[in-house]
Amino acid sequence: MIKEVIVVEGKSDTAAIKRAVDADTIETNGSAIGEDVLRRIELASERRGVIIFTDPDHAGERIRKIVARRAPGCKHAFLPQEMAYYKGDIGIENASPEAIVKALSELRTESADQAGEIHWEDLMEAGLIVHADAANRRLIMGKLLGIGYANGKQFYKRCTSFRISKVEFETALNEMEKKLEE
């Protein structure tokens, strides 16, 4: 059983999680998270820890930010969009048990000290911002680093708050360049 409580968006996500692992969940019921749900998440964070595992879309990112602000120090699980896609719908509920287990095995934890090794200039030099193919490059790097897809500003924030090292970044960058050459 997973010790932490997993925060998901809805009942279908809970069902998918339970098919993959033995864990407790808290459902946000979408992006209109109520105060009572946020209090339950705070309590779970204090007593057991929390893993935020939201859909890899705009609404999921919004929920992730709200929960992370309310319960700092949460762990984050990220699922690549293609692993969560089914018939035009993107969501955790569409992922295979294997994809869910993999995402939960590659957790990232935010650090309160946001002074990471990666700088804005590193993203520019890597073509992750201010580049014609920046969005695609961030998509690939996000998968390789296990931090999910994000726009440039959010990608930078994730690199710093998850304390991505220069070595991790360079390794992922080299792997991305190889993938793009294929």
Rank of each mutant, 00 (worst) to 15 (best):
M141P: 02
T28Q: 05
E93L: 10
S105H: 09
L79M: 10
A115V: 06
V21I: 15
G10M: 12
Q154E: 15
H131V: 02
R163P: 00
D55V: 08
P56G: 10
A95E: 02
E4C: 13
G88W: 09
W120S: 06
S12P: 02
Y149N: 11
I2D: 03
F78P: 00
I100T: 07
F78T: 04
L173K: 01
E121P: 04
V50T: 13
F53N: 10
K102E: 08
T54F: 05
R19C: 11
A59M: 13
Q114W: 05
R108Y: 03
A134Q: 10
I63A: 08
D13P: 14
I6L: 13
E98H: 04
H58D: 09
D113K: 11
A95N: 03
G10P: 11
S111P: 00
D122Q: 02
R48V: 07
E42R: 15
L128N: 08
A150Q: 11
E181R: 15
F155V: 12
F162G: 01
H131S: 11
E106I: 02
R70I: 09
M176K: 09
I51D: 06
G146A: 05
T25V: 14
P80A: 11
A32F: 06
Q154V: 14
K153T: 14
M176P: 06
G88R: 10
I2P: 01
Y149F: 15
N151S: 14
I2V: 14
A44N: 13
E61L: 15
A99P: 03
L104D: 00
E93K: 11
L104H: 00
M176Y: 06
D55S: 10
F53V: 09
R69L: 12
R158P: 05
I90D: 01
L79H: 07
A20K: 03
